[in-house]
Amino acid sequence: MPADQQETLFQQKVDAEQKIEPRDWMPEGYRKNLVRQISQHAHSEIVGMLPEGNWITRAPSLRRKTILLAKVQDEAGHGLYLYSAAETLGTGRDEMVDQLLRGTAKYSSIFNYPTLTWADIGAVGWLVDGAAIMNQVMLCRTSYGPYARAMVRICKEESFHQRQGYDILVTLSKGTPEQKAMAQDALDRWWWPSLMMFGPSDKDSPHSAQSLKWKIKRQSNDELRQIFIDRTVSQAEYLGLQIPDPKLKWNEATQHYDWGEIDWTEFNEVIRGNGPCNAERLAARQKAHADGAWVREAALAYAAKKGERNAA
């Protein structure tokens, strides 16, 4: 079948909300776009373990410690599900990890910000996971079957992540003045980076239109960002915390919040590698990978020996 005809059939399937499966014909661009997006998503889960992992050893109660450890562990699991989904497109995990370690693959810039206080763990759960979940819920309906199935699993597991973060902040906001200040400080530092998580504005987003047509994405960056803001404001009010945006105001006409302007210079700098923790995050992943090389080799060598013995 000629390629243009296959492409028409492919688009018909997508338009009819049929899932695309690994062995189906798909345009090269679709495949590439997916590998890029899914592997970035997987890298984000893995690098995302670092800022929160930073507080596992310092969590202030045994209950909080177990919750945080379970959550960071979930992120490892989610990274794994996503690498799995990307692997169905013919790119091995080793290749994707290699791109991450070489610094040629992207991951969500939010994880290049430091977690400085315990309240940051609350803010990361509430805002960062909250923003991520918006994206992930949308992706449960993405056109590529394995990606959609991985996202359904992830969304089910993520539901406690945002709540545990908010729960930390509820406790802090009811606590001493120092604890309350800690919570406000975390919100001040995490608010804008969280909004940046939705990506560039629609008018500047290079991949968005095609992704929407292919139903890889189902809603635009700006749409999701607005929904996130609308939902989050009242949650901040309940905590008695001030969102650090003087322009934030309910608009009766649009039934949405108006809000200020994202500092896109900062956004672009962090993407370019000039965020507070870019170098540390990459170095930590490189070290784990390099230190683990002999472990992975040993397991393979042993499996080979055992295979030979069983065959003999």
Binding site: R93, D94, D98, L101, R102, Q286, A290, L300
Partner: peptide, 12 residues
């Protein structure tokens, strides 16, 4: 740091 010359564990 490269895993290029290192064999990956098989996929299950």
């Amino acid at each position: 740091m490269s895993s290029k010359n290192e064999q990956d564990w098989p996929l299950w």
